[in-house]
Design a protein around this nucleic acid. Structure first.
Lengths: 210, 210
DNA sequence: AATTGTGAAATCATTCACAGCC
DNA sequence: GGCTGTGAATGATTTCACAATT
C-alpha cells in the first residue's frame, strides 16, 4: 500500500506521534502502540502501512524512525508560522500556549480590530491592527490562520485571510465559514462539544431511573 | 426510521441548531438548511429523520419546532452544571467564555491544585482546591468536567472526576485518557489540530512548484 | 514465536434517486 | 410543483484473520 492517506488516518497520526514521544523504548509493536493510543491494533498497522513499510515482522517498529516518518508525513520538518486574529480571552490564551512552539508552530502575528488593544503585548508579541494583516502574511510567510473573534466577524476575517493567501484556517468562532475549495478550514467549537456531551449524558441518564 | 442516532449525526445536530437559530424565517427546506450548514441536503433530511418526521412535504420544516426537537434530543431542555479543572490560560479563558451560559451550560466550579490560585476569582467564581472537588460534584450536581491542566496531571484529574461520579469529560490536555466504558471523553487538542493543518498545507505546497 | 502487512468481510456514513405527500 | 422521507447504491472506515517475514 502507499500514498494518498485517508483523512481518518491523518487525524490519528498526531496521536501516534505523541504516544511514541512518550514511549521511551527503542521499538514498539502495533499492539503496544494501540494500547497507548486506545485504538485497535489492526488500525495502527493499517494506518502506518499508508506511510510505507517501516515495521519489522516479529519485532515491531523502530520508535525513532517512526517518529521521523510520521513527522515528515505531517509536514513537521518545517516550522509553520501561525497568526491569531481576535485577541479576546481565548485568543490571548492561545497566544500564550507553549505547546505550539514546542511542536514547531511559531505564533508570529496577533491581530485585533479593537484600537484599544493595538500595541498591547501578549506572550511577548505586540497586537497589530488588521490593516497590517495582508502585508504581514507576505512578509512573515504566515501560513496558518487562527480565528478567535466573535461569530459575527469570523466570516469577514476568514475572507481577509483567504485574500491574503492563507490556505489553512483553524476556526474557534461558533460559525460555519464559506471558503474556496483550495482552503482547508478546521472547526473547533466549544459549545458544540458541550452539546455533544449533553446528548450522551441525557441518553445515559435516561437509561437509569434517575 | 427512528431512535439510536448515529454519532456522525449527533455531531451535526448542534450545527443545524445554530443555523436554525440564525435563520429568521418560519419554515426552512432541507436544501436551504444544507446551504447554511454547508452539507448535502440528503444528509440533512436523513439526519433529521432520525429525530422523527417533523417536516412537511412540499413545504419544509417548521423552524421553531425543529429547534425544539433538536434541543430536546441533545438534552438541552435541562441546564447542565460544568466544572473546570486547571485554571491556567486556557481554563481562565473558558471560565470567562459567555457562549456556555447562553447555551445552558453553567460553570459552577473552578478547581486548581496551585495554592497560589486558590481563592482568586475568575469570571465571578472563586477558584477552589481539589480537596473540595468530590463534595462539590455532589452538592452542585456537576455533570460535565472540563480538563485544562497540563498533560502530566490530566489522567489523575480524570480519575478524580470519574471517582466523583462524573460521566462526561471534555479534555483539552494533550493526552489520551484511560476511562471506564460508561464515561464519555471528548478530546479537543489544539496541537493536534495544527498538525492536521500542517499535513494538508504540506500536501498542497508539494503539488505546486514552490 | 512474534509481529507485520494486507486482502476480504463487516460496519458505518454519504449520496442518489424517486415514490409519496402536501 | 416543491419538498420530505427513505430504500438502494456507493464509498469510507474498521475489524478480522492469516500468509509472509524476521
Amino acid at each position: 500500500m502507499h500514498r494518498q492517506i485517508p483523512p481518518a488516518t491523518v487525524q490519528r497520526l498526531p496521536i501516534y506521534l505523541r504516544c511514541l514521544n512518550e514511549s521511551g523504548s527503542e521499538t514498539i509493536s502495533s499492539e503496544t502502540l494501540a494500547e497507548l493510543a486506545r485504538v485497535n491494533s489492526a488500525k495502527v498497522r493499517k494506518d502506518l502501512s499508508f506511510l510505507g513499510s517501516y515495521g519489522t515482522r516479529g519485532v515491531g517498529y523502530d520508535v525513532d524512525h517512526l517518529v521521523y516518518q510520521i513527522g515528515r508525513e505531517l509536514g513537521l520538518t518545517k516550522d509553520w508560522a501561525v497568526c491569531i486574529v481576535g485577541i479576546g480571552n481565548l485568543g490571548r490564551a492561545l497566544a500564550q500556549y507553549r505547546g505550539f512552539g514546542e511542536r514547531g508552530f511559531a505564533v508570529l502575528g496577533l491581530f485585533d480590530s479593537d484600537p484599544a488593544k493595538i500595541g498591547k503585548k501578549v506572550g511577548g508579541r505586540t497586537i497589530e491592527p488588521l490593516s497590517r494583516f495582508k502585508r504581514a502574511v507576505k512578509d512573515r510567510q504566515l501560513s496558518i490562520g487562527v480565528i478567535t473573534t466573535p461569530a459575527a466577524s469570523a466570516q469577514e476575517v476568514a475572507d481577509q485571510m483567504v485574500a491574503a493567501g492563507i490556505t489553512s484556517i483553524l476556526n474557534f468562532a461558533p460559525t460555519v465559514l464559506s471558503k474556496p475549495d483550495n482552503v482547508d478550514v478546521r472547526r473547533v467549537d466549544l459549545s458544540t462539544e458541550l452539546q455533544i456531551c449533553s446528548f450522551y449524558l441525557a441518553r445515559s441518564r435516561g437509561k437509569q431511573a434517575s
